[in-house]
Amino acid sequence: MEPLLKLTNVKKSFGEIHAIEQVNLDIHKHSVIGLVGGNGAGKTTLLRLMSGVYRPTSGSVKLENSRPISEMRSVLGVVPESTGLYSKLTAWENIRYHSRLHGIDDQLAWDRTYRFAKLLDIQESLHRYTEGFSRGMKQKTALLRALAHGPQILLLDEPTGGLDVTSARIVRQLVRKLKEEGGTVIYSTHHLAEAQQVCDRIIIVHNGIIQADGTPEELLTLTGTKSLEEAYVSLTSEAARPRMEESEQPSKISKIWRRLFTPKHQLEVDEDE
């Protein structure tokens, strides 16, 4: 069966930093795939490559029938880690803004939104400004926004990060329901237990490399361990690198300027490091 999304020899570098190295992935329909890894592992970069926000340095990201990802954004629904809601718009206005840019009729978008809003129990808040929303409400609204145009693939970046137990549970239930309805979800998390609960397939990313890819049972067999936690530890024993953003360097002028206003003893410590 042809994969819905195919990453072939994908490499992503930012200057001299290699964020993602030689990734090959096939994402098939009707599955929930967990991207698991620590901070700075490369999960978000991988998701941004899948959503077309980043272009691969080498290799290719293609949808089925070899369509380039840039032409196929309409089949994607993306929930970034930050949720990305406009605080001076209501929840529905936020959703409608994205669905309009997807070219979806307002009524159709509203019907879909209302249906999922009932599942997430926020139908009463759709006409409220998102300014006062809790983290959970924001996450749910971002999910509705990603679903309003009926995407084939849903990309979720840490969707339960910062949520209380009940909200996180509701989000997981929604993901499972989407799978039952034939959807495909790529779910990034650093919680193994959560991935085990929700995902059919777990991809362990560490230092920009896919260390393992398979069902929970396959990961246990691969590592010869009894629990996923042990499997994860054995697969990610190499020291984690710092986050990409932290590795970015200031400009030469900024460096010189900063040195002028840094005490000499502090400069010596920095140089030693």
Binding site: R48, S51, G52, V53, R73, S74, L76, V78, V79, P80, E81, S82, T83, G84, L85, Y86, H98, L101, H102, G103, A142, R145, L155
Partner: peptide, 10 residues
């Protein structure tokens, strides 16, 4: 943090 979701739109 609103730019990323916007850039993933068609």
């Amino acid at each position: 943090g609103t730019l990323e979701s916007l850039l993933s739109l068609p």
